[in-house]
Design a protein around this nucleic acid. Structure first.
Lengths: 337, 337
DNA sequence: CGTTATATTGAAACATCTCAAGGAGGGTGG
DNA sequence: CCACCCTCCTTGAGATGTTTCAATATAACG
């Protein structure tokens, strides 16, 4: 579980926050002023920092300023605590690079939701931003850029893997079809993801198909280049190893789900997956075809719809047309059956 | 599909063989004598060679002798065609390094089964032998060797990934359990396979468990070493990239199967998977618990048993106790529902 | 504004799971 | 060497979850 540093001068508030976070299963570190906060942040590298603005010694702005210069903490999510929602305070904090803010007094769920969202978002971006760094320039040296619209097929099962693909913007689903023409979603790609590279590594044909879910800009990298770089450049090969590891772990999990979980639960998981990939901001709403949802959960469209109606009457989601709106994602995740 | 070189001086027989193989979907190359055969073998590097023994110019032994010296063909499966099953002929051929032999006259299924088996076996060994080469010595430099008996747990979900594992001999299954305690087989390992390295790469805890199916010798490599080597040594990292690619493709397929195939078909697939991993020699027979089969197919033990009884009454398999014997694997693979 | 694609619902057919009970084999200790 | 226990395998029958087919409603699009 994640570690959270709480920097707050008021003892009561500090203890209260730590207690709530502890109960929610986070590990907490506390600091009673800005100076100590900075020290502990650099030393212990927490996964997220909650920090009061008004403090003696060194105020919240100062803490943020320092931490955003240091290598160790520069990308740690930073949330301000402000006594009252003074617009100007908040604006200044956000301009300095804070990720979010919470106004005091707050209730438990405010705190937990905000913390949770930021942690999740950070993991995504962490996975994302890594890719457009350093030695990846080489990889993109011979890229060609293509634009696709929704429903365009990027490649099909059986096409020879001439390129690997980097999704710069948009949404893409990677699917695989069985002999009866039923389709399963193997992967959902968000901006910053690579896809179609497994087969390219083996110098084979694509074993799956890729289709755009909305207008997308995709970078094509010749497989040849990719293979060479992977062989030579250990930075790139280890990056891809990590990508594939992640992928494998996700697929393992998916196998387990498909083997033994009920459709109801699989649909819930599909919705949460969609949120994790594509949430821009809470509350999460999104346009997805029922077909996509069904093929993410490995079930028929009708069954998928039935489950959605159940969720709707349970007050977990709202639906209008193809737009789905997650009202209570937490409960969706805790679904017992 | 694979390419097969047929070396045979008798025109009728040669054409007959090629025709059968063509119909079965193989690409064929033919050669009317040993000399031409050698030339074509070196030039076109077929995936398998069928070769008559008695031929003018250069006989079958000669062909085998030459080809087993050449880099290009040294590991290509080589099957002799002998006019009558003269024991001595056959023995001499096998001593020279032939992989199998077919006695003329033969019927279609003889030919196809033998060819099929050899191709499959070769792929396995190819996948296996690769690993104990060259720079893998470094990987094994700090290994410790452990012996486990059947049903021993090697690691559990949640253990920290201190080592990666190489199965030197025996059989291991890697499984993952869901909250209800139901287990799915994620991977079956045969000698020469690595396992438990995904989590080690990420410096995380194991996300699955590994259990021996029979007495096994396992080499443990400290994760630390492994991670360092992967970073530095591009030969190793690219080898593992390939391993993971394969793994991903297999898992993709498994996801599709679990999503939409009937239990009947999934059980058939599980049996064939077992054969592909563990067949020592045809006909295939093996001891596997019903539980393992069930968790490979993602179903309950009872259902797995019911399917096995169906297969039994359809004459596809034979069962005594926990030993299963595949009588008609081809038909098992072509199972329509 | 019509036409097509997509979403929704119902009811029956079907596959699979669960629970329950019995059988076969293998090993252990008396 | 036999009786017993334990584990694993097998079968039955009812309950349940899921799919399918068919009909209708709604949304999307040019």
């Amino acid at each position: 579980m994640s570690t959270i540093l709480v920097i707050e001068d008021n003892l009561d508030i500090r203890e209260n926050i730590c207690e709530i976070l502890d109960l929610a299963g986070y590990t907490t570190i506390d600091a009673e002023n800005g100076k100590i906060g900075v020290e502990k942040a650099v030393e212990q590298q927490p996964d997220l920092i909650l920090c009061d603005i008004m403090m003696p010694e060194l105020d919240g702005y100062g803490v943020l300023h320092i931490l955003s210069k240091r290598e160790e903490t520069l990308s740690t999510p930073f949330i301000f605590l402000t006594a009252k929602a003074e617009k100007s305070d908040v604006r200044r904090g956000m301009n300095l690079g804070a990720d979010d803010y919470i106004t005091k007094p707050f209730d438990e769920s405010d705190l937990l939701t905000t913390v949770d969202n930021r942690l999740r978002k950070h993991q995504q971006i962490g996975g994302h931003r890594q890719t457009d760094h350093a030695s990846f320039e080489q990889l993109f040296a011979n890229k060609s850029i293509k634009h696709y619209s929704a429903k365009d097929i990027i490649f099909r099962d059986g096409d020879s893997a001439l390129n690997i693909y980097y999704l710069n913007s948009g949404k893409v689903k990677v699917t695989k079809m069985n002999n009866d023409g039923k389709e399963a979603v193997i992967d959902l790609c968000k901006p910053g993801d690579f896809f179609g590279y497994w087969s390219a590594l083996q110098n084979q044909e694509h074993s799956n198909s890729a289709e755009c879910l909305e207008n997308s800009e995709i970078w094509l990298i010749p497989s040849e280049n990719f293979r060479e770089l992977v062989m030579e450049n250990s930075e790139i090969s280890s990056k891809f190893l990590k990508l594939m590891t992640n992928n494998l772990l996700i697929k393992e999990h998916k196998i387990l789900d498909l083997a033994y979980e009920s459709v109801r639960k699989r649909i819930a998981t599909a919705l949460l997956d969609l949120r994790d990939k594509y949430s821009t901001d809470e509350p999460f709403r999104m346009k997805v075809s029922r077909e996509t949802i069904a093929s993410m959960a490995g079930t028929s469209i009708e069954t998928a719809i039935r489950m959605l109606s159940e969720f709707k009457s349970d007050g977990l989601i709202e639906v209008n047309g193809s737009e789905i709106h997650l009202i209570n994602p937490e409960k969706l995740g805790r679904m017992p059956y």
